[in-house]
């Protein structure tokens, strides 16, 4: 593990979080991509530091990298790709249907929030 790589992971998370808190759907997708990168880096960091590839040619060298996080990250990269593709398709469809890239507030929830004084007086015995 090295300090700079950890810092990279942390900054990727921070920027990714900032982006998924936006209303633009395409920015949210980019944010998600950044967070995935950050998570992958964290998994790699949890393995060994800089090392030689885990390819066995005769003796197992002591500097060889941990293969397990690599296998996990490989899977994660591919799955992230699938999700990004799906979300992009969704964003495109949503834009073509609504004419905007922004995520609007949930109208139903808004209405519940405004349901304040309507049922204030319950029945009370006279």
């Amino acid at each position: 593990m090295s300090l700079i790589t950890l810092a990279v992971a942390a900054i990727l998370f921070a920027v990714g979080t900032y982006l998924i808190l936006q209303r633009m759907l395409s920015r949210v997708i980019i944010g998600l991509g950044l967070i995935s990168h950050g998570a992958n880096l964290l998994i790699m960091l949890a393995g060994t530091g800089p090392a030689t590839p885990p390819v066995v040619t005769g003796e197992i060298a002591p500097t060889v990298a941990d293969p397990l996080p690599q296998a996990m990250v490989l899977t994660a990269i591919v799955i992230t790709f699938g999700i990004t593709a799906f979300l992009l398709a969704l964003a495109l469809r949503s834009y073509l249907l609504t004419g905007t890239d922004a995520v609007e507030d949930d109208i139903e929830d808004r209405r519940i929030g405004r349901l304040d004084r309507a049922d204030e007086e319950p029945e009370v015995a006279a």
């Binding site: 900054i11 998370f13 921070a14 964290l42």
Partner: peptide
């Protein structure tokens, strides 16, 4: 948003 983002970043750094 920036505050939440920095909080998450700091958390990841600490977790590392």
């Amino acid at each position: 948003r920036l505050a939440v983002a920095l909080l998450v970043g700091a958390f990841v750094f600490g977790a590392g």
